[in-house]
């Protein structure tokens, strides 16, 4: 049965009419055209569909959109501001934290959620946190390096200014 779902997505109020069974990942991709969020395993294991709901990372492939009605949602599209990539995005580029790219939006969102909550995680904390984001290309070392690098630059959230030219 269709119902109205109101979400603040990447800072913008959006209203969608969708059946109750609509998953958050599908609402983002098909109703709002935000295809940056990927669907991998569809069962909440691989992390590709990671987005933030009210600042907490969730698996959007097992989240009913109707159940988060009224929430703020942040997706990969919401990270860059004024043509400047988020420090985590920039670090993934600078340190080769991705190859094929399918898992990357989820990796970046998970890393952002970690640094939002714990700006100085230990390497073990990063490994533990990122454990739920699968990658079949990188072997994870580059992802770990990227998160460590982002940690160094994210405190000021401004060090990417000198890289502005690369981000378009």
């Amino acid at each position: 049965m269709p119902q109205r779902i109101n979400l603040k997505v990447n800072g913008e109020e959006r209203e969608v009419e969708a059946p109750a069974r609509r998953l958050l990942v599908d609402l983002l991709r098909y109703d709002l055209g935000l295809t940056g969020t990927k669907e991998g395993c569809s069962v909440g294991v691989c992390g590709a569909c990671t987005v933030l709901v009210d600042g907490e990372m969730v698996a959007s492939c097992i989240t009913l959109a109707a159940s988060v009605d009224g929430s703020e949602v942040t997706t990969i599209e919401g990270l860059a501001h004024d043509g400047r990539l988020h420090p985590v995005q920039q670090a993934f580029i600078d340190y080769g934290g991705f190859q094929c790219g399918i898992c990357t939006p989820g990796q970046v969102m998970a890393a952002k959620a970690l640094l939002d909550e714990n700006p100085r995680p230990t390497e073990e904390e990063i490994r533990d946190w990122m454990m739920g984001n699968l990658c079949r290309c990188t072997g994870y070392y580059k992802i770990l390096e990227s998160v460590v690098a982002a940690m160094g630059s994210s405190s000021a959230n401004s060090s990417s200014a000198d890289r502005e030219g690369q981000s378009s």
Partner: peptide, 9 residues
């Protein structure tokens, strides 16, 4: 339990 993402939910 599972992963931090699942434990958030």
């Amino acid at each position: 339990v599972a992963t931090p993402r699942i434990r958030n939910m």
